[in-house]
């Protein structure tokens, strides 16, 4: 086993103590323990191995610049267009729908695509449902969003979605977004709720939250192919099992405070002086309707087959 590296480089967008960072930490710890230190992993949060450029993470992993990663489907969509599936507006109504996709036929097909794209996918994690926040007013309808400047992440699908809602999307990294939000150059943003508390978004003027759950981005645990092939079959199995266990633990962390009946996380957020708006089914429908053309347009890009399968599995999910 002379070709084992002394240390393997794992790329992450967020470090511990965020659920995303914990996913990497738990995975690395389990692997080290179970391989008796044969496989040592060092965490590189902030995608620091490619100067923070989240959208180059996957190609760098394929090229051996990164050995392993826990990455978001949004960040890897420039390389794997099928991953845009999870960013289709209002595809997944609840956590059961997310599970129906990742743990079912769709998940298998996506893993096959990731494999074709040059990396070994091992397990699913979760970044979570992305909720809308802003500094101006409670948003209950697309009309409320009209003309608002919203910071979005790097995929053209997000620009399309917010344009369809009449908003004014601007793409920028979080480092730019923070001062832009606090100075009022940008009105709002969308991110999972746990990030709202971690990044203290109420301190940059984000006083209104709408829990519309329009998209959720799962995380994928992957390993570079050459690295994978350099390991013994027994070690590969250890790494895979560890990823699956870390994914399960991480999903529980990411949903903490949001799956309980009284949603304590939202209460915490409201306790910071933030107005939390929950949409009625009719209000939510207005957003669904407004974004339907975007959904249809991107359905073709992603692959109608895959989207149809996803719709079928969601309809058949256990609630």
């Amino acid at each position: 086993q002379s070709n084992y590296k002394a240390e393997y480089k794992m790329s992450l967008v967020l470090g511990p103590p965020t659920p995303w960072g914990m996913a990497g930490q738990i995975w690395a710890d389990l692997v080290k323990e179970r391989t008796q230190g044969r496989i040592n992993i060092k965490l590189y949060p902030g995608v620091s191995l490619v100067q923070g450029d989240q959208t180059r993470e996957f190609s760098s992993l394929r090229q051996g610049v990164i050995d392993m990663a826990v990455g978001s489907t949004i960040n890897w969509s420039p390389q794997i267009k099928e991953l845009n599936l999870f960013s289709l507006p209002f595809l997944m109504p609840d956590y059961a729908a997310v599970d129906a996709l990742t743990q079912g036929e769709v998940g298998k097909r996506i893993f096959a695509t990731v494999d074709r794209a040059g990396a070994v996918p091992l397990a699913w994690g979760e970044n979570g449902f992305r909720e809308l926040t802003n500094s101006k007013k409670p948003i209950k309808s697309p009309e409320d969003l009209k003309g608002m400047k919203i910071r979005v992440v790097g995929s053209p699908l997000f620009s399309d979605t917010f344009n369809a809602l009449g908003a004014n999307p601007t793409q920028m990294s979080w480092a730019d977004a923070q001062p832009a939000l606090s100075s009022g150059a940008v009105d709002g943003q969308e991110n999972p709720m746990f990030l709202f508390t971690v990044l203290k978004m109420h301190t940059v003027g984000q006083k209104f939250v709408t829990t519309w759950g329009y998209v959720a981005d799962p995380l994928i645990f992957v390993v570079n192919k050459d690295v994978w092939n350099s390991w013994s079959p027994a070690d590969r199995e250890i790494v895979r099992q560890a990823a699956i266990e870390a994914g399960k633990q991480e999903i529980a962390l990411a949903r903490k405070g949001l799956v309980e009946a009284d949603k304590p996380l939202l209460k915490d957020v409201a306790g910071m002086g933030v107005t939390v708006t929950t949409l009625s089914p009719a209000e939510r429908d207005a957003f669904v309707k407004a974004t339907r053309p975007v959904y249809e347009k991107w359905k073709a890009t992603i692959g109608a087959d895959l989207v149809n399968q996803a719709e079928k599995d969601i309809a058949a999910r256990k609630k």
Partner: peptide
Amino acid sequence: ANQDVQWFGLLAVPQNFYAGLAKYP
């Protein structure tokens, strides 16, 4: 440091070169 990796891990050079510049700020 990467003698066993494809292209000696040198693809980190163009990736970091490009990513280091591709920053809007």
